[in-house]
Amino acid sequence: MADALLGPAEIRELAGRLGVAPTKKLGQNFVHDPNTVRRIVTAAGLTPDDVVLEVGPGLGSLTLGLLGTAAHVHAVELDPVLAAALPETVTARADVTKLTVHAGDALKVTAGQLTPPPTMLVANLPYNVAVPVVLHLLSVLPTLRGGLVMVQKEVADRLVAGPGSKIYGVPSVKLAWYADSRAAGRVPPAVFWPVPNVDSGLVHFSRHATPVADVSRALVFRIIDAAFAQRRKTLRAALAGWAGGADNAEKVLLAAGISPQTRGEALTVTEFAAIATAATALGHGGKLSPTGRQHEEVDS
Rank of each mutant, 00 (worst) to 15 (best):
I167M: 11
V76Q: 08
A15D: 13
T23F: 02
L121G: 05
V37S: 09
P116E: 05
D214T: 06
R39S: 13
V131F: 00
E271I: 06
G244R: 00
T69R: 15
W193S: 12
R158S: 06
D299H: 14
V129I: 15
V101Y: 05
G201L: 01
Q261M: 14
T100C: 04
A94W: 01
R93Q: 08
G147F: 09
P196R: 07
A15C: 12
A209L: 11
G19T: 03
V170W: 12
A273H: 01
N124H: 04
A130S: 15
V41Y: 10
P22G: 06
S181C: 14
A279G: 11
K24D: 11
V122D: 00
V215M: 07
P194L: 09
V140C: 08
H74Q: 10
T91V: 06
E10S: 13
L202Q: 04
S259Q: 05
T280F: 03
G146W: 05
L148H: 08
I223F: 00
A240H: 01
A43L: 11
A85C: 05
P87A: 08
A183S: 15
N29S: 14
A237L: 13
V134S: 03
R12G: 09
A218I: 10
N128L: 01
R38N: 13
H102Q: 07
V298S: 12
R93V: 04
T97L: 11
P22M: 03
Y168N: 00
M150I: 04
R38Q: 15
L219K: 10
D33V: 05
S181D: 05
A184N: 04
A256Q: 00
V160K: 03
A273M: 04
K98H: 12
T23L: 12
L239F: 00
I167E: 11
E88Y: 01
A84S: 14
G169D: 07
A190G: 13
Q113H: 11
L175K: 06
G104Q: 10
A281C: 12
V51A: 13
V101M: 04
E88H: 12
T47D: 14
L148R: 07
A176R: 07
G264I: 06
G147S: 10
D199E: 03
D199G: 03
K233N: 02
T291E: 10
A237I: 01
D49N: 13
D299S: 15
A184W: 06
D50E: 02
T47K: 15
V101Q: 03
H204W: 14
A226E: 08
G283S: 10
G264V: 05
G68A: 02
H295E: 15
D157K: 06
L107D: 06
A243E: 00
H295R: 14
S300I: 12
A238M: 07
W177E: 09
T115V: 07
A237H: 15
L141K: 05
V37L: 10
L62G: 03
